[in-house]
Amino acid sequence: MSQPASSLKTSSSRRLLSRFGLSGRGLVVLVPYVWLLLFFLIPFAIVLKISFAEADIAIPPYTALLDWAEGGMLTVKLNFASFMFLLTDSLYAVAYLNSLKIAFVSTVLCLLLGYPMAYGIAKAPASWRGPLLMLIILPFWTSFLIRVYAWIGILKQEGLLNNFLIWLGVIDTPLNILYTDVSIYIGIVYSYLPFMILPLYATLEKLDDTLLEAAADLGARPVKAFLAVTLPLSMPGIVAGSLLVFIPAVGEFVIPSLLGGPNTLMIGAVLWNEFFSNRDWPVASAVAIALLLFLVVPIMLFQYFQEKQQEAAKQ
């Protein structure tokens, strides 16, 4: 009895959908687009709009972009002063370059540390892999902020690390690590390492062991077989992991502000300053837009490699 009713209902809802030119499949495809529109494109448009405005003492603290001029004419005032300002003051260029440098070095360190770990997990007996992966993911269960804070306790002059090294007799006077670039690297590598390990593990785990046997059979020693077979075939994982570390590291704000020194200039901190200390929203927005442009290139690279990987997986 209920079956005709429900089929009637589905057919009527289908009719409703088709009135808007939509099928069920179309709806499923639509969801991510709506999501991106609401939470990426619209906010981006707002930020872009603000970046073209002028700072003003008002609420909100910038001038309107669109104005109704006399006679009902709509005028658009684009103000490039904020972007020009980024170019004139070397502070911004230095901050951008420094952010890129720190992100790049952190990514390389993550790769050097993460690759052996991912390789080790992928080669471990099958029953070990689950627990080992769990250990990689486990730190996420504690708040990111607390974990970064904990490093202060470890790295400070009277901290765990210095006390331990002095107790060992390796050093006489405490090392000055906290509030330097070194402590930023430690913080970023520690925080983002799982993002490197997981995609690397995913590609290494799929790697066919008979390929390594074939390489050995053809006369390649283990190191050579690794360089000629394992490494090139794990390239998609290397690219994915590197981008997952690099992109958020460029804009990182929490780690440099907690662990970095007064001389560390990163773009995230500059942005925060413009926004909250100077209350110059247009310049802050321009900084954000420029940062985005710096990141769009790696994101596009990332997508390009992902597509290639998917194509290869199909074959």
Binding site: D208, T210, E213, A214, A215, D217, A228
Partner: peptide, 10 residues
């Protein structure tokens, strides 16, 4: 030298 069942081509 061995020829593998799965061929194991790179």
């Amino acid at each position: 030298n061995m020829m593998f069942q799965s061929y194991a081509l790179f």
